[in-house]
Nucleic acid binder design. Sequence first.
DNA 1: TCGCGCATGTAACTCGTTACATGATTCA
DNA 2: TGAATCATGTAACGAGTTACATGCGCGA
Lengths: 196, 196
Amino acid sequence: MPVRAKAATTTLGYALLGLLAREERSGYELTHALKNPVGYFWFAQHSQVYPELARLETAGLVAYTLVEQSDRPDKKVYRLTDAGRAALRAWLNDATEPPRKRDELVLKAYSIWLADPTAAAQMMREHAQTHLAHLAEFQSGLSRLEQEAGETLWQPESPWFGVHAVLRRGIGYEREYSDWCEWLAQCLEGTQEAAR
Amino acid sequence: MPVRAKAATTTLGYALLGLLAREERSGYELTHALKNPVGYFWFAQHSQVYPELARLETAGLVAYTLVEQSDRPDKKVYRLTDAGRAALRAWLNDATEPPRKRDELVLKAYSIWLADPTAAAQMMREHAQTHLAHLAEFQSGLSRLEQEAGETLWQPESPWFGVHAVLRRGIGYEREYSDWCEWLAQCLEGTQEAAR
DNA sequence: TCGCGCATGTAACTCGTTACATGATTCA
DNA sequence: TGAATCATGTAACGAGTTACATGCGCGA
């Protein structure tokens, strides 16, 4: 089993390297890229991104070119260095701890026996809807990817494959979550007898 | 939709209140209770628990009795006050944001196209095993609960119902996670053709 | 005798969030 | 006129982790 070596940067750093391995981007663009779909499993505010980029640059894992613009502010366009690519590859081989989840809704479920069942059921239904909406987003993301990437989204060497993998995880996660909410709502309403 | 009122305490505080709503416990016991199964969705070290209990006590949400012991250190046994129970109930009605997930493995999946597919597949298989092991734990937890609680685990007013809900979430989550790992491993090995 | 379980705390540090700060252009 | 987009930063704060600190009893 591979041992976790002394990390070259933080996990956020690797997230940024992973984005830059695909194409060069400014800090501003990276911040926005840390949403849909990567950002569903790792995210950050710009106030974290800019200092992290500076650190990565000091460590020699990224380099930037200052692009002067007349109509809008100048920007620093970052790209991955060879050392950065190597660090990213090495990180992939490191051991990964399973994520330690913090989920306030599940925590509430633990105490839900103290709540009014009808109101609680309605709350769970709302959450089911939220997760169904996320599910739909991921599914349309996958459809778009199929159009753009075609067969390459099944090829492990293609960057599209990475997007594909993340979207699949999102789809599975959101479906499961919304199913659980729905199940819990039915239990609270006492209409779960049949489905036991 | 209920509005998030000024919180009486932190989320960890509510986690502790949720445990104390079931039975009185010392800080030490609470720390241990913040594992299996609640701790799978909210957890803390003792260094966080003790100061939080002190804050809850100052706020009047819990009270304690000092239990002197001869063979081992004295302990403070905390119990929920009426105000604490009310605060817990109020929190259940507050709006809950869907959790913002950080999952290093999914982040790695995004960059997995840079890795050696065979090694990556093996890594994903190991993670699948880990999550299957967690799944088995939750399932045996549910079996034990069925023995202990019987039909009450389906009754929304019973404390067992809360445990039941959390365990169900854990089972669904771990099953989905391990399925995803397995799916990804097969893709990396190129043996996923049939299951598309 | 060494380590573990019981039992409670404090201190230092890191990571992440929210807020502060600036400033041009474009669109409603 | 006011808000949104582009663009980059710093500062203050809070939550959470790791390490420091103590001390008795019990079993291997």
